[in-house]
Amino acid sequence: MDYRMFKHRMVNIVERMKAIGGNVSEVMIGAPASLQQIEACEIKLGFQIPESFKKVLLEFSSSCNLRWVFPDEYQLAGELDGIFSGMLHWDLALLKELNDDKNGWVKEVFSNPDDEYDKVWHQTLAFYEVGNGDYIAFDLVDNSTDACVIYLSHDDGEGHGYKLADNFIDFLEKWARIAFVGGEDWQWLLFTSNAQSGLLPDSQSAKLFRSLLKLSI
């Protein structure tokens, strides 16, 4: 992954959102994690962290945060009119707590692995809390050293079970090019074509989004 390009895209997103009067949080990029910190987290979790996520934690940052919200009077037209914010975040130090919360949903609400809806929640590692009860997570079902990124909806959201990317690096590279729109599924769904397509940063919708916002990402 080209981390310099990734940071450049983050800066461009922040600058454009500020230019249109949006509310933008301070960009926070923590120090890279140590292997010891990752191993300690894996012991708490009881399994290994997917390789692409581990690579980013070791080489780039153990925690990252960026959030933007359009100003009240600002609205994109047509199919883009539901977009209002974007948020990027992950934190190795909070990973165990985050998954304890996610597993609470599994235990109390989605406990049946034979149910088509429930089973999507099982064998997952959440790294992103949307804030409405939904999560973005790794699908650990195939037990591979890496894992695809999927969406977990707690209330019959259309994006439930959608694959967003092949792995964490693929996710960051694609998501950055649509300014980290979301995380609610109804904000990013138009940048997919089906449940297995992943995010499509070169789709017509994505190109229109960048054009309207004058984003060079």
Rank of each mutant, 00 (worst) to 15 (best):
P71G: 13
W68G: 08
K44R: 14
F84D: 11
L212V: 11
Q204F: 06
K7S: 12
F168R: 10
N112I: 10
E129C: 04
Y3E: 07
W186C: 11
E129Y: 12
S85H: 08
D146V: 12
G82L: 11
D166S: 11
G131P: 06
F171Q: 02
D170V: 12
V27Q: 11
Y151H: 13
K18S: 12
H160A: 09
E73V: 00
S153R: 01
G30W: 09
I217D: 06
D72E: 14
K55E: 15
L189Q: 07
Y135N: 02
D142N: 15
V56S: 07
D2Y: 08
D134A: 04
E51G: 00
A206V: 00
V24P: 01
D118E: 13
D72V: 01
D166G: 02
V120M: 03
N132L: 06
I29S: 08
L98K: 09
G161S: 09
K102P: 00
G159Y: 06
D185T: 06
K107Y: 12
I29T: 13
E51L: 12
I13E: 02
D170N: 15
S144F: 05
F60W: 15
F70P: 02
Q196C: 09
L66W: 03
L213A: 03
N167A: 05
E26G: 01
G161E: 09
L57N: 01
F110V: 06
R4W: 00
S34K: 12
R67Q: 14
I43H: 11
L140A: 01
D2T: 05
M5G: 04
V109A: 09
Y135V: 08
D115Y: 11
S211V: 01
S25K: 14
G198D: 08
R67L: 08
P50L: 05
Q37S: 15
F6N: 00
K163R: 14
Y135P: 06
V11T: 14
I20T: 08
E51R: 09
D134P: 01
Q75W: 00
K163W: 00
V106D: 05
G182R: 02
A206F: 04
K55Q: 15
W175C: 07
D156M: 13
L95N: 03
W175F: 11
K214C: 07
A206C: 01
S211E: 15
A126E: 03
C41M: 15
D114L: 13
M17Y: 03
E59L: 04
I38M: 12
H8C: 02
G161V: 10
N143L: 13
K55P: 03
N132S: 14
S85K: 12
M10F: 04
V14G: 00
E116S: 10
L58Q: 11
I38W: 10
M10I: 15
E184R: 09
A33D: 08
A137P: 03
A179F: 00
Y151L: 07
D72T: 06
C64Q: 13
E184D: 13
G22F: 06
I217R: 02
K102N: 00
R177W: 01
H154V: 07
K96G: 02
L189D: 03
Q36T: 13
G78Y: 02
N194S: 14
K96L: 12
E39S: 14
I136S: 04
I29D: 06
I38T: 09
Q123Y: 00
K174A: 13
L92M: 04
P32R: 12
Y162A: 05
S111Q: 09
G182E: 05
L66K: 08
A176D: 11
P201D: 10
C64A: 14
M1N: 04
